[in-house]
C-alpha cells in the first residue's frame, strides 16, 4: 500500500539531486496540450516522453514541458524539440510509440527522426 511516508523517503533521497539539476538541461521537449492536442492524443505522448526521458537516464539533459495551441491543429499531437545552438525540430501526428523512437534516436542518439517531422508531412 502506497503511503505518504514513502513520499517522505523520496524527498530525503531527492534533496541533493535538486541542486545538481538546476542550470542544466539544454534540451527542451515541448508538447502542445490545448484542446486540439488533447483530443488528438497528446496525453499519452507527453507521459511517454516524461517516462522514457527518465528511464533512459536523460533527465539531467532534457526537460519535458507543456504548452498551449501551437497553431497547426491538423498536425496534432505536435511536439517541438529545442536544443541550444540548433534549429527547432517539430514532430507532428505523434503517438506514444513514435515518442519512444524519438527519445531513443534523437534525444539519446542525436539523430532527428526525419520521417515524423513536419517537413516530411508538408512535402
Amino acid at each position: 500500500m502506497k503511503s505518504l511516508a514513502e513520499l517522505q523517503a523520496i524527498k530525503d533521497k531527492m534533496k541533493d539531486k535538486v541542486v545538481i539539476r538546476e542550470g542544466s538541461g539544454n534540451v527542451r521537449v515541448v508538447v502542445g496540450m490545448a484542446t486540439c492536442g488533447i483530443a488528438a492524443g497528446a496525453r499519452p505522448v507527453l507521459n511517454t516522453f516524461v517516462e522514457e526521458v527518465n528511464n533512459g537516464g536523460l533527465a539531467e539533459k532534457v526537460t519535458v514541458s507543456q504548452t498551449g495551441c501551437i497553431g497547426i491543429c491538423q498536425f496534432e499531437p505536435v511536439v517541438e524539440v529545442y536544443e541550444a545552438g540548433k534549429e527547432k525540430v517539430t514532430y507532428v501526428k505523434m503517438t506514444a510509440e513514435k515518442a519512444k523512437e524519438v527519445v531513443e534516436k534523437h534525444l539519446k542518439g542525436g539523430n532527428v527522426v526525419a520521417e515524423y517531422t513536419i517537413a516530411n508531412f508538408k512535402a
Binding site: 505518504l4 513520499l7 517522505q8 523520496i10 524527498k11 533521497k13 531527492m14 534533496k15 535538486v18 516524461v50 527518465n54 533527465a59
Partner: peptide, 12 residues
C-alpha cells in the same frame, strides 16, 4: 511533505 522538492520531479 516534499518541501522544496518540486511536485513534477519524476519520482514524485
Amino acid at each position: 511533505i516534499l518541501g522544496e522538492v518540486p511536485l513534477n520531479s519524476y519520482e514524485v
